[in-house]
């Protein structure tokens, strides 16, 4: 596998690794209750976010299963950091990956996540040779559900009250996408046929 080339450009965004100087920009959306509502580990204060950024700054390649690649979504033009996307290589034997994302609510509805996730899905299937991608989201998160449907992911699981999440019974949805279900890559044409390592 050739090494990963960053940053990645989409129509309106540059996807790049996080930097120390991103703290203020990330805090602007990360600590908001509407974002905190759906995150696994709460980051309610600046120091929590600083810790998260120091972790995310190291998430720049997928070398072994369990590794995560996290990229900041930076708008071309004004260089505003509007959100983040990540790809976790969860299993090598079955080539499984998981996507996660968060966006500044003030910047949602502009198609940024669609662009960023499309680029990340291309990367997962074309570059990292992932066989199946999955996304978990809270059943109440209607924006996420719509986004998954728009990207063409299938609803694979709808768990009801299978765990406690932030002190309440959860409702969790799993969406998934197999490599052969994804549209032909927009960025790589005439992809050479390569044997997949199952």
């Amino acid at each position: 596998m050739s090494s990963l080339r960053l940053p990645i450009e989409t129509d309106h965004l540059v996807l790049r690794p996080f930097e120390r100087g991103d703290l203020e920009a990330v805090c602007r959306y990360h600590v908001l209750p509407t974002v905190q509502r759906y995150v696994e580990r709460p980051t309610r204060y600046h120091e929590d976010v600083a810790k998260v950024i120091s972790i995310m700054r190291d998430q720049v390649e997928l070398h072994r299963p369990g590794d995560t690649l996290t990229l900041a979504m930076v708008r071309k033009g004004d260089h505003a950091l509007v959100g983040q996307v990540s790809l976790r290589w969860s299993d090598a034997t079955a080539s499984q990956g998981e996507l996660r994302f968060a966006i500044d609510p003030a910047e949602s509805g502009k198609g940024y996540l669609t662009q960023a996730l499309t680029a990340l899905i291309d990367l997962a299937f074309d570059h990292f040779r992932i066989h199946r991608l999955m996304v978990r989201c809270d059943g109440r998160s209607h924006h996420s559900v719509k986004l998954m449907q728009k990207l063409g992911l299938r609803l694979e699981a709808h768990y009801r009250e299978h765990a406690l999440f932030q002190g309440e019974w959860d409702e969790e949805l799993h969406f998934a996408l197999l490599d052969r279900e994804w549209r032909p890559s927009a960025q790589v044409v005439d992809l050479p046929v390569r044997g997949r390592v199952a």
Binding site: R132, M134, Y159, H174
Partner: peptide, 24 residues
């Protein structure tokens, strides 16, 4: 039926397809 996973793991040398059922 709460889940229908397709090819989310290898099972006995093949891609698996698995159902989860639940009752509250």
């Amino acid at each position: 039926r709460e889940a229908h996973f397709r090819e989310h793991a290898r099972f006995k040398g093949e891609w698996d397809e698995e159902f989860y059922y639940a009752i509250l």
